[in-house]
Nucleic acid binder design. Structure first.
Length: 411
DNA sequence: ATGCATGAGGG
DNA sequence: CCTCATGCATT
């Protein structure tokens, strides 16, 4: 395929030039493990933040062409690593020709960068380039269809034999949705409040893998992948064997949960949603409500298999609907974000390092101190007895969740 | 992402 | 009181 020539458009008419403060160039990510603030890309991200002074018309040496390259590729950019370091592996390109459609917010999704651990190390916004800089891109045969609507794209996961996510691909959203259960796009109203039974009555395979034949799509070739050497999804997804871990506990398929958790995260990010948003939306909608904490813990499986099993259906259902809405442009998923007045809690006590050290020491000797012991320890360290008691409770709980559940992960 | 807190449920 | 599932508050 033609090399990604960059359309020379360093800058146009100086006067009217909008410095284009966009975050575009932010594609580069630092090798720092700290990636806390999720670059949530939302439909209505308020007003553009005043860019750090852009030179009026001086030709800055730093031409910003780079973004365009990715911008157009719903391709893959995955990072893998061995030592936990992030490295760019490859980027497969696909070029959905986007002609005149206005860059409606609707289709904006983000590209996720994940490493071998399935951890997200970054995201790239899908920029719909208005200028139609299609020139450089592949897609030899495809013509810039005029009314090609930029449909919301949902990611398609590419997994390797180990079940690890290698990358995500964009593809027709419609179809993806179709695969899932026949979920009627009705109102989010009181649909079902299933009491969640431990019964094995959950027929959702949750398999998002290989989705080769877009048979269901009659009037358009949804699969934008064109590079001859670009492996097809099915090819990459060769999943002949179910490696190992017939891990199952208490009738709960740990592996399945693990997979879903991974999936969930990726799809969530594809929708450009943060854990917080999901939590809020989940709370707003009918049905079981969960917080950001819950989402976070689920994603990293920092919960008991039982809890995970319980959450899965809820999250799955919600996600399906979210994706559906996303397609329809109904970005009204996050409506009432209004925070209800919640009763105040006792301020979280913060133990001093010394106290923690002491507590840990006690804990090692005896993880379950008697009431008396607790009282003594509390007095010793000069903390409220109750606080100490709770500390032990939480300590035990944490221990359990991290050790037992590590059965989940394979770190 | 986590640490401390709250509450339900079981003894 | 304990365990468990969760969430608010904080790092």
């Amino acid at each position: 395929m033609p090399a990604p020539v960059q359309p020379a458009q360093p800058l146009q008419a100086p006067p009217t030039v909008q410095p284009r403060p966009s975050v575009q160039t932010q594609a580069v990510f630092q090798p720092q493990p700290s990636l806390q603030s999720p670059p949530a890309i939302l439909p209505q991200p308020a007003a553009a933040p005043p860019p750090p002074v852009a030179k009026p018309l001086e030709t800055q040496t730093q031409i910003t062409v780079q973004p365009a390259g990715f911008a157009f590729n719903p391709g893959i950019i995955s990072a893998a690593s061995l030592g936990g370091q992030t490295q760019l592996l490859s980027s497969l390109a696909a070029a959905p020709v986007i002609a005149n459609t206005i860059p409606s917010v609707q289709g904006i999704t983000s590209q996720i960068l994940t490493n071998a651990q399935g951890q997200v190390i970054g995201t790239l916004p899908w920029v719909v380039n208005p200028a139609g800089i299609t020139t450089a891109n592949a897609t030899p045969a495809v013509l810039p269809a005029q009314n090609l609507q930029v449909q919301a794209v949902t990611p398609q996961l590419l997994l390797n034999a180990q079940g690890q996510v290698i990358a995500t691909l964009a593809s027709s959203a419609l179809q993806t949705a179709a695969i899932r259960k026949p979920n009627a796009p009705e109102s989010p109203a009181k649909n079902e409040v299933q009491p969640i039974q431990p019964a094995p009555a959950l027929p959702q395979p949750a398999v998002v893998i290989a989705n080769p034949a877009p048979a269901a799509k009659p009037s358009s070739a949804p699969v934008p992948i064109t590079c001859s050497e670009t492996p097809t999804v099915s090819q990459l997804v060769s999943k002949p064997q179910t490696p190992n871990t017939g891990a199952e506990e208490d009738g709960i398929n740990l592996e399945e949960i693990r997979e879903f958790a991974k999936n969930f995260k990726i799809r969530r990010l594809s929708l450009g949603l943060t854990q917080t948003q999901v939590g809020q939306a989940l709370t707003a909608t009918e049905g079981p409500a969960y917080s950001q904490s819950a989402i976070c813990r689920f994603e990293k499986l920092d919960i008991t298999p039982k809890s995970a099993q319980k959450l899965k259906p809820v999250l799955e259902k919600w996600l399906s609907e979210a994706e559906l809405r996303n397609q329809e442009g109904q970005q009204n998923l996050m409506e009432f974000v209004g925070g209800e007045p919640s009763k105040k809690r006792k301020r979280r006590t913060s133990f001093t390092p010394q106290a923690i050290e002491a507590l840990n020491a006690y804990f090692e000797k005896n993880a379950l101190p008697t009431g008396q012991e607790i009282t003594e320890i509390a007095k010793e360290l000069n903390y409220d007895r109750e606080v100490v008691r709770v500390w032990f409770c939480n300590r035990r709980q944490t221990l359990k969740n991290t050790s037992k559940l590590n059965v989940f992960q394979i770190p």
